[in-house]
Amino acid sequence: MNGLVTRLTIATGLGATVLLLGGCELGPKQTQQTGYRGAGLDQIVDVSHIQKAAAIPAAPYALPDDSGPRASETYQNVRVLGNVSTERFNHLMAEMNQWVAPPEQGCNYCHNPENMASDEKYTKVVARRMLQMTRNINTRWSTHVKQTGVTCYTCHRGNAVPEYKWALAEGTLDPMAIRGNKHGQNTPDKNVGYASLPSDPFAEYLQGAGAKNIRVASSSPFPSSDHIVSIKDAEKSYGLMMHVSTALGVNCTYCHNTQSFRAWNLSRAQRGTAYYGIRMVRDINGDYINSLRSVFPANRKGPHGDPYKVNCTTCHQGLSKPLGGVSMLDQAPALREGPPVAPAQQEGGPGASKAVPAAFRRPAAMTDNK
Rank of each mutant, 00 (worst) to 15 (best):
M1L: 06
N2M: 09
L4P: 03
T6S: 09
L8P: 13
T17H: 00
G23W: 05
C24H: 13
E25S: 11
K29G: 08
Q33L: 07
D42G: 09
V45D: 02
D46P: 04
S48I: 05
H49I: 13
I50Y: 15
K52F: 13
K52H: 13
P57C: 00
P60L: 10
P60K: 08
Y61E: 13
S67H: 08
G68M: 01
A71R: 08
S72T: 12
Y75H: 08
Q76C: 01
G82D: 10
G82M: 15
N83S: 00
T86F: 15
R88K: 04
A101T: 06
P102Y: 08
C107S: 12
C110K: 10
P113K: 00
M116E: 04
D119E: 03
K121V: 04
Y122R: 07
Y122H: 00
A127K: 10
R129C: 04
N138Q: 02
N138V: 02
R140G: 12
S142H: 10
T143F: 01
T143Y: 11
H144G: 09
V145C: 03
T148E: 10
V150Q: 03
V150Y: 10
V150I: 15
N159I: 05
V161W: 09
W166C: 14
E170K: 13
T172V: 15
T172K: 14
L173C: 14
K182N: 09
G184P: 02
Q185F: 00
T187H: 12
P188S: 11
K190W: 15
V192C: 05
V192W: 12
D200R: 10
P201G: 09
A203K: 14
E204Y: 03
Y205Q: 01
G208Q: 13
A209H: 11
A211P: 11
A217E: 11
P221L: 00
F222K: 07
P223T: 04
S225V: 07
D226L: 12
I228M: 13
V229S: 12
L240P: 08
M242I: 09
T246C: 07
V250S: 07
T253Q: 14
T253D: 14
Y254P: 00
F261E: 12
S267R: 15
S267E: 12
R268D: 08
A269K: 11
G272T: 05
A274Y: 10
A274C: 10
Y276C: 04
R282D: 03
I284K: 02
G286V: 00
Y288E: 01
Y288C: 03
N290E: 07
N290S: 08
S291T: 11
R293D: 15
S294W: 00
V295Q: 00
P297D: 04
N299D: 09
R300F: 09
P303K: 14
Y308E: 02
C312L: 10
T313I: 04
G318M: 05
G318A: 01
K321C: 01
G325N: 02
V326L: 15
M328A: 02
L329E: 10
L335W: 14
L335P: 01
R336T: 15
P339Y: 06
P339H: 10
V341S: 07
P350K: 00
S353H: 06
K354L: 15
V356M: 06
V356C: 06
R361S: 01
R362Y: 12
R362W: 00
A364E: 00
D368R: 10
N369M: 15
